[in-house]
Structures are given as C-alpha cells and as structure tokens.
C-alpha cells in the first residue's frame, strides 16, 4: 500500500486568485450574455425597473474583480512559489515538453503512465497561460468599452483594437472562450481527481496536495 504525504502547493494568494477569477467569470458570462442580448422585456414605461443598468453594474464590478485576479496571477507567474512560477509549467524545458506529450497521451487513454507532479502539468499550465493572456485582452477590451472617452484605456484600446466595435466583437468572442474553458477545466479536474488520490480539488481550497512518499 502506497503511503502519501501532505505537501503545501498553492499559496493563499493563488487560491484567492482562483476564487476571485472563477466566480467573476461565471458572473461575467451570465450578465455579459444578458447585455449582448437582453432577453427580458419590461415594456412598462414609468415602472421602477432598471434591468440593463443593474446587469451592467454587476458586470462592471465582476470585471474589476476579474482584472484584479489576473494581475495577481501575473505577479505569481514571476514571484509565486515554485509551482506557481511560469517556468514550472510552460513547455520551455525538456522536462515540461516531455510532460506535455505524456499528459496528452494519458488524457487520450493511450498510456497508463502518469507522471507525478505537484504543480500544474505542462498541458494544463500551457492552457492556463494562454487563458491569462486572453484574460488580459478581455479586460483591456472591457476597460476600453467602459471608459470610452479620453482615458488611458481609450488610448490603449484604440491603439490595440481599433474602433469600439472591433473591441466589442473581440470581447464577445472571448466570452465564449471563457465559457468553453470553464467547461473543459471542470471536467478535467474532476476526471483527474477521480483517477488519482492526490487531492486535486481540495487543494484549491486548502492548498495541500498529496504525493506518494518515497520508500
């Protein structure tokens, strides 16, 4: 019988990042889709309804939290613990490139070999890396749309994306990327948690994973 030991992997800041990022994405998708296509009808004039304004208000607050979360993760890419730093999981080292392919084979049920890693595997890490990059695009387009007149964000947005309409289009397409990412992420996490007793899901709550003890 294998013996496992508890290992501290995810710092408090990383867990805070995750639990700000995930609910904000959920909120942003729900309110964002409403803003894109307001499906409620409030055809009563002079009523107290303020539906779109409230949806936008929630969307903006969630967007601010989303932005803060992304900035926290960017900080951890370089100043986090050894599992959180970007070179621990990007396929830029031999170890990670090997792990990227072995993970792909493993996920496709083509091999039973599972490499023990406490941090992200290279496949997940690469996906998270690109997700954070897209999140930066998302909050920049969002800030451009939110501050349309003469601010720093207007200037950045107009330079990077062009007109507001282009920014809105990118912002909307990326909304679907984040929905897609959430679906895949939750599935793979649950799948991994079932396959391995390393405490993957609980690790994002308490920071601890379980690794096989060398005997």
């Amino acid at each position: 019988m294998a013996v496992y030991e508890k290992k501290y992997v995810w710092s408090i800041l990383l867990r805070l990042f995750h639990w700000t990022f995930a609910p904000s994405i959920f909120t942003l998708i729900v309110t964002g889709l409403y803003i894109h296509w307001p499906w409620t009808n409030t055809w009563l004039e002079g009523s107290h309804q303020f539906t779109m304004a409230i949806m936008r208000w929630i969307h903006f607050i969630a967007g601010m939290l989303f932005t803060c979360a992304v900035i926290a993760r960017l900080y951890l890419w370089f100043f986090g613990n050894k599992y959180e730093r970007v070179w621990d999981f990007l396929p830029i080292t031999g170890r990670n490139i090997k792990n990227l392919f072995s993970t792909l084979l493993y996920y496709a049920y083509l091999t039973d070999h599972h490499e023990e890693r406490l941090g992200h595997n290279a496949l997940a890490g690469t996906a998270y890396f690109f997700t954070i990059l897209l999140a930066i695009v998302q909050f920049l387009t969002g800030l451009y749309l939110l501050y349309p007149e003469g601010s720093l964000f207007t200037s950045i947005g107009a330079t990077l994306f062009g007109t507001q309409q282009v920014a809105r289009f990118i912002h909307y397409i990326l909304n679907w990327y984040f929905a897609w990412f959430a679906l895949v992420h939750i599935y793979i996490v649950v799948w991994n948690d079932i396959k391995h007793p390393e405490g993957l899901i609980s690790s994002i709550f308490d920071g601890f994973k379980f690794a096989k003890k060398e005997q």
Partner: peptide, 30 residues
C-alpha cells in the same frame, strides 16, 4: 437602461419609441 427594446421593426416597442439596441443600433460604439 430600463430594458425596453424594439424587438423588430414595426412592433409596439418601435411605435412607442423604445431603444433600438436589439435591432442593431451601433450608437453604443459610435
């Protein structure tokens, strides 16, 4: 802001002068 939109041209909302957002008004990005 209050969620009153023209759903299609010629409908009641259109006649009442509601917001044209859902029939493609580009005011929010122009």
């Amino acid at each position: 802001d209050e969620g009153r939109y023209v759903e299609q041209f010629g409908d009641v909302g259109h006649r009442l002068g509601f917001c044209l957002y859902k029939v493609g008004c580009k005011g929010p990005e122009t």
